[in-house]
Nucleic acid binder design. Structure first.
Lengths: 213, 213
DNA sequence: GTCTATAAACAGATAGAC
DNA sequence: GTCTATCTGTTTATAGAC
């Protein structure tokens, strides 16, 4: 069976520009003219390749899903079979999520696009869920259950994992508030490290783990 | 000295409609025609009263700040002078924040408007910060310091408080993801209670407090 | 203060040449 | 597949009557 064709040439350039501009400005605030200009393509190319602005948005969401799925499967993640290993794996994943969401490189246009789709409840939410939110949450549930001794499928476990994820996500979504209140210009490596250490301490506390012991 | 005049009549109706529609659809996706129609006013009234669409947006942000400041000063908040009282006050405030962000009544159009301004990094961010984010964070820092015995002005305290706030905010921002993963239709009283209890347990764990002891 | 009418710019979509 | 030119509708803003 064939795999979905990878976008290339003009088509890819338009998707690239769409991911970036939709993410930066939002869907409604971005015109197809602006996208075509940024992509070095003609305005009519959008209708030709995607049927219109809505089609381009969907193609961007599909490209997001493709890249995210690939990033998820190639991410390291040491295997965990004991509670201590699961705790270490949790720390790793939460740290990686923080770097992915707050770091200036790597994520590129993907994170802003994802957050816009989520905030606007756009047609890309479904792909964001399936390619990123669900796999991440599911994986964290398994590890949390192993680390804490609880049921991975229970309501409590799923809620706890969302509180873990929320701690991280907020530093991205509330960025203008956080940086202003902390007196930071932006999130540099030092700031990300400080945040990561705090989230790590919170996880230990929630697991009833005493790092001093 | 005079206080700022309270909007009334057409002016207030336009602000009310703006708060609601900007919050629901975003700034760029909302036309002044739509707002005038929803307010039962004439299209030209927006230019007359606010100078244009941007002016209306700012007036909405000012109204947001006014209502939020008033809600903040009238909110209960038992006085705390011991660590145990501070812990109880923290639980109260976090619970109230959750109800404010997730509940269908009370907040009304304010929460969606605030989140849109934040997501779009609009001109209202400054007022959101001064009227809501800063006072809330500041108050929580004081209580956390009292409950934990740490310095209220330290970097760690401020970061910890943001992790508390983030746990709550995410359940609103990530609502489509959370409800889907939890198998919930929406956030009802039962769901909010479950979330509140989990956040309460997390706070206890972070404070090193054992509810069984 | 509120209205109608309209201006001027812009949006997305498309026809048709190449 | 890519281009120019244009169509059609909508946007915000404004002029001017009342």
């Amino acid at each position: 069976m064939d795999t979905l064709p990878q976008p290339e040439g003009t088509r890819l350039a338009l998707i690239e520009a769409g991911l970036r501009l939709f993410g930066q400005q939002g869907f409604a605030a971005t015109s197809v003219r602006q996208i075509a200009l940024a992509a070095g393509a003609n305005i009519a190319a959008i209708a030709y390749h995607f049927g219109g602005k809505d089609g381009l948005r969907l193609a961007c969401a599909e490209e997001f899903g493709r890249r995210m799925s690939s990033a998820m499967t190639t991410s390291p993640g040491r295997p965990a079979s004991t509670a201590a290993e699961a705790r270490a794996a949790l720390q790793d994943i939460l740290r990686a999520m923080l770097g992915f969401l707050l770091g200036d490189r790597g994520a590129g246009a993907l994170v802003p696009f994802m957050l816009r789709e989520l905030a606007e409840n756009g047609p890309g939410v479904d792909l964001v869920y399936r390619s990123f939110a669900e796999p991440t949450h599911s994986r964290l549930c398994t590890l949390w259950a192993l680390a804490s001794g609880h049921d991975p499928a229970s309501t409590d476990t799923r809620l706890i994992v969302f509180t873990l994820i929320g701690q991280i996500m907020y530093f991205r979504i509330g960025q203008p508030v956080v940086t202003r209140r902390m007196g930071w210009d932006t999130y540099g490596p030092d700031q990300i490290d400080q945040i990561a250490r705090q989230i790590s301490r919170n996880l230990d506390a929630m697991l009833g783990f005493d790092p001093e012991g």
